[in-house]
Structures are given as structure tokens and as C-alpha cells.
Nucleic acid binder design. Structure first.
Lengths: 215, 215
DNA sequence: CGCTAATCTAGAACAAGTTTCAGACTGAGT
DNA sequence: ACTCAGTCTGAAACTTGTTCTAGATTAGCG
């Protein structure tokens, strides 16, 4: 069984994934690449397990051994993409004074990345929110990654100590808003501008939990 | 055949649903009832189209004529339930001074209703967030209903004029948080207490947009 | 009443996610 | 190199959402 639990890898690379041989790691990579490719083309529906298997030169059964369901597969893909995003963001940190502004800008960067590949975004986000309990640990990993990105934006480098519980609540709410706003955008019920407003609105909560300059 | 000839629900005005004969209205009702029953038992997965059809004495093809997909069916169910909730809430309005507190309390009432039937909640919420563009108008209806409930809680009776754009943004963010927090709860990644905190946290945005007492 | 179009029914058929199975392959220990 | 357990493959089977078809029913309407 894949009882896969570990702590977040603070250092870049070196993810403590249960020991895989080189060929297995390569298979896993191929699968994720094929998934990304198919998702980029046609979104959630275009990621068909048979096609992913064929496209990555792996038997269907093997695909299911690596990822026990389509949802698992897409959530893993999201984890992959987020990891990349996180490193990209680390490279060019924002310099704005206001933490709230930095967070909003960071999320808008991520949002622009999604706009570049809306189908891929669709596949990943739909999988993420459709996931049931059987995927909770994987979804949780994605969630922790997202939290890390937001916290990075909030308190750059060695900021003043660990975040307060209040701040963590604010971050959770920001994450909620982020996910849900994405969904409304993906399903065509909200414009890009509206998503921007929502993000900026919710980021005001950060000011609210920052004793230094509340409003 | 249950030729059930009870009087029409006291609901003020049914929406302009394209003219249906009485038998058709009855069929529609049976379908929604069966759906609710099945969803209450086992959540999203337990709502199987063949079972819904059989359970409501309707052919599978007919079911699909009434609701073009499982997602449509569940979103319609949610609309139904929300409508009921809305009326229940109207009957016993909250009296708290603070608008933010009223909204938070209202959402917690709704949340408690969901806790009573977690499977049903699962089915409806999962459908709602999984819905793609083909369901957007129906999802939008649900969204408007939710907004109405929140606005009701915010400005009871004839409050001071229509809400400002800022307030509407806050409401949208609250809705985002509400949906996403529900999902994390349903998938077992957040406790009831945490959902409560998130709701209360996001509701602070209301104070922030209320010029009278911003902290 | 008798006609016509729309609707409904039963059931088969199809699509894609998931499971299963027999046999081939790999790799770690001897 | 030999063997055994675990892994991978190819293919079929199973499940459930969705579509399709032919014939029965129903609702209006002259």
C-alpha cells in the first residue's frame, strides 16, 4: 500500500518519495509528462487513462499502480506544477512594502500562469476540488505547498517569527478564495477582472491581522 | 402510480420554468426526491442514474430529458434544498447587532444543516464545484440564491439602500470561502471547528467594508 | 372521435474509469 | 547463472454515465 506520509521538503529537490528504481522514476516522469500534455490540449476530459498509458508507454495496469485513480494522477500533476511555480517565484521575490499587496501580486502571477494554459488549469483544479477522502493526503500536500507560497509572499526571507494563528486563518481563507475563484473563472462564471478583485479583496484580511498597519 | 394531488407549495412564485403539465411536474418532483434520498444515503457515488430513474418510476431516457446530466441533476437538487433553507432562515431572522456576526451565524446554521446530512451535502457540493460550462447557468442560479441568503443576513429587512460594490466583493469572497471550506470539511481535511474559524475570519471583511464601525 | 407531434418506455449500445488475470520481465540475493 | 518475489504487459471484463432506437402513450386540436 502507498502509505505515503512525510514532512514538507524545505530544501529544493530531494523529495522523499518511497524508493523507486531509476526506470520506475522514469516511468513516473513519463506518465506525468503525458498527463500534462493531454491536459494542456483538452482539459480534464482529454486526460483519458488509456491514452495516458499508451502515450507514456506503460500498460494500463501499471498506470493504475502508480496512480490509483485519474484524480490521484491529476492531483500529482498539480503538485508537480506547483513545485515548479514555487521555485520560479522564489527566484524573483516581490519587493512591495505591503504584505497584502505582495500576496495579491503573487497569486496574480500564478493566475496568469493558469491563463496561459487554461485547459491544464481546468484539469488540475477540477481534480483537486472533486477529490474525495481517498485522495486527502495528496490534496493536503498540494494545500501545504500553496500555503508555503502564500507565506513566502507574506513574510519574505526571515520575517518576524512564525505566523500567528490569526494569520494562518487568514491564509486559509485566502486559499479558499483562490481555489473557488479559479473555479468560477474556469467555468466561465467570472471574468479575469473579477478574480483579480476577489483576490485583492480577500488579501485585505492580511492587513487586518497585521498589528502594525491595520488600514 | 402515485397520483399525488396535494396543493402547490406555499412558495410564493415558482420560477419561469418552461410550462410543464401536472404529470410532468410530478415526475420532476419524484426525480428530485429520489435523488435526495439516494444522495442522503451514500453521497455522490450513490446517486446512480439508473437507480434514480427506477426509483422515481421514470425511464432512463426520460430522466436525461429532464436533467441532461448527473451534475445537472445534483445542482438542481441543491437549488431545491437551498430554496427551502432560504425560507427557513427567513422565518427566524437573527437579531445580532453586528452584520458580520449575523452572516457568520447564518452560514453556521447552514453548516449545521449540512452536518445533519453529510452525504447529501457531499453529493451537492461536489457536483457544484465539478460542474463545467454546460451547467453554468444552473450553477449561477445556485450562486445567486446563496448571495441572496448572505445579503439577507447582512442587511435585514429594508436596510440602508443597496449594497455597495465593495460589499458585493466581500460577499463573493465569503461565498468562495464557504464553498471551499465545505469541500475541505467534506473531504476530511478540516474539522468543524476549523470551518467555523474560517467563516468567522472571512466575515470580518464585512466590518471592513462597513464605514460605521471598522474596528 | 381521429390525427399528429411530442413525450415516454424499455432496452440495447457506447464511452471511459477501474479491476482482474495470465504470462513475461526484472532485479536482488545466493 | 538460478531462483523467487515483485513488477510490468496486454487484453478482457466490469461499472456507471450517456446516447440511441423502435415502439407505446399522451396531449392538443380540428
Amino acid at each position: 500500500m502507498t502509505t505515503d506520509s512525510r514532512s514538507a521538503p524545505t530544501a529544493p529537490s530531494s523529495l522523499p518519495r518511497p524508493l523507486l528504481t531509476e526506470r520506475q522514476e522514469a516511468r513516473r516522469r513519463r506518465i506525468l509528462q503525458a498527463t500534462t500534455r493531454l491536459a494542456t490540449r483538452g482539459g480534464f476530459d482529454a486526460v483519458q487513462m488509456r491514452e495516458v498509458a499508451e502515450s507514456s508507454n506503460v500498460a494500463l495496469g501499471t498506470l493504475y499502480r502508480y496512480f490509483p485513480s485519474k484524480i490521484h494522477l491529476l492531483v500529482a500533476t498539480m503538485q508537480d506544477q506547483l513545485q515548479q511555480l514555487h521555485e520560479t517565484l522564489r527566484k524573483r521575490p516581490l519587493t512591495d512594502e505591503d504584505p497584502a499587496a505582495r500576496v495579491a501580486q503573487t497569486l496574480m502571477r500564478a493566475f496568469r500562469a493558469m491563463q496561459r494554459e487554461p485547459h491544464l488549469a481546468d484539469a488540475m483544479v477540477r481534480a483537486l476540488t472533486f477529490a474525495d477522502r481517498s485522495v486527502s493526503s495528496e490534496v493536503d500536500t498540494v494545500s501545504r505547498l500553496t500555503t508555503a507560497i502564500i507565506l513566502d509572499a507574506m513574510g519574505p526571507a526571515g520575517a518576524s517569527g512564525p505566523p500567528t494563528p490569526e494569520q494562518l486563518s487568514a491564509v486559509r481563507v485566502i486559499e479558499h478564495t483562490w481555489h473557488s475563484a479559479l473555479i468560477t473563472w474556469l467555468s466561465g462564471r467570472a471574468s479575469i477582472a473579477q478574480v483579480k478583485i476577489d483576490i485583492e479583496t480577500v488579501c485585505r484580511l492580511i492587513d487586518l491581522t497585521n498589528p502594525n498597519s491595520p488600514r
